[in-house]
Simulated scan of single mutants.
Amino acid sequence: MEEEVAQDTLTEISTGHSSSVHQAKEFTKAMAIGVLADFADGRNTQTEKMVVTRDFDLIKNNLSFKLPNKILFDIFFEIRQDLTDFLRKKLHNSDIQIDATITAEETKAKPRTEQEKFESMAEKNPSIWKLKEALGLDLLF
């Protein structure tokens, strides 16, 4: 009789263990963007919304957010677990992982002198160089 009880317990344990479902449904970047928008709608602060609406790279089940500064990076780590749980639930994929990197955005200085302003305009429209030459204009004063 003791053997039967031991066998039933093992069966229940193994049955209980195999009943847990490991979800790994595939998803696209567009689907992830939609879920992130839903998550952003439920957030209280504008900065949290900014974090989850930033651009990210999707490689398999890994989302890597590109954040421009340390402030957003710190906020990301405050909401990371909630965001991960939300994505896993909504996208039906328990393998989803998220991380973030700080990507310093290059800022170009505004043109200050007349020469710099002209060169900036000429970058956008190269025909300005031809017009300057045709009219024989000199930008140096």
Rank of each mutant, 00 (worst) to 15 (best):
E106L: 08
M121G: 04
S14H: 10
T9S: 10
Q115W: 03
G136W: 08
E106S: 09
T53R: 11
G16W: 08
I96P: 01
F77S: 12
D138R: 15
D8H: 15
T107F: 14
I96A: 01
K49F: 10
A24G: 04
E114A: 15
T45N: 10
K66G: 05
K117P: 05
L131H: 12
L139M: 11
K70C: 09
E106D: 13
G16M: 01
F77K: 13
R80V: 06
T84M: 05
T103G: 04
F141S: 06
I128N: 00
H22P: 03
Q81V: 04
E12P: 01
D74Q: 14
E123H: 02
L10M: 12
T53H: 00
G42K: 09
L140G: 10
D85T: 08
Q46E: 11
A32D: 00
E123M: 07
E3M: 11
S18G: 11
I98K: 10
F118Y: 14
L36H: 00
K90W: 08
N62M: 10
K124I: 10
H17R: 13
S120T: 12
L131W: 13
L36M: 07
L137C: 09
E116I: 10
M50R: 09
K130N: 11
K110N: 14
E3S: 11
E4C: 11
K117F: 07
Q115M: 14
L72Q: 08
R54E: 11
A37N: 13
N93I: 08
L83W: 04
Q81M: 02
K124Y: 04
D41M: 09
G42C: 06
K29R: 13
G16F: 07
E114H: 15
F77Y: 15
D8C: 12
S120Y: 12
I71W: 04
D95N: 15
I79C: 03
F65Q: 02
K60Y: 03
I98S: 12
F39N: 06
D8V: 14
D99T: 13
T107V: 15
N93Q: 07
R112M: 12
R80H: 09
N61L: 01
L83D: 00
M50S: 09
Q115D: 12
K110G: 08
K117G: 07
K66C: 06
V5P: 04
N44F: 12
D85N: 14
L87S: 01
T28K: 00
A100E: 06
T28M: 04
V35L: 00
L91G: 06
V21I: 15
R80C: 01
P111S: 08
E114Y: 11
I33H: 00
E4I: 15
V52Y: 06
F65R: 03
E3T: 14
T101R: 02
D74G: 15
I71V: 14
A24C: 09
I96G: 00
F27I: 01
E48P: 03
R80I: 02
Q97I: 07
E48A: 06
V35E: 05
F73L: 08
Q81I: 11
V52L: 04
Q81N: 11
I13G: 01
L87D: 06
M121W: 03
S20H: 14
T15M: 10
L58E: 01
V51E: 02
I96S: 02
S18E: 14
T84A: 05
K89L: 13
Q97F: 10
F118M: 06
S127P: 00
T11H: 06
L10A: 11
E116K: 05
V51S: 03
A30C: 01
E123F: 04
D85Q: 08
G34M: 00
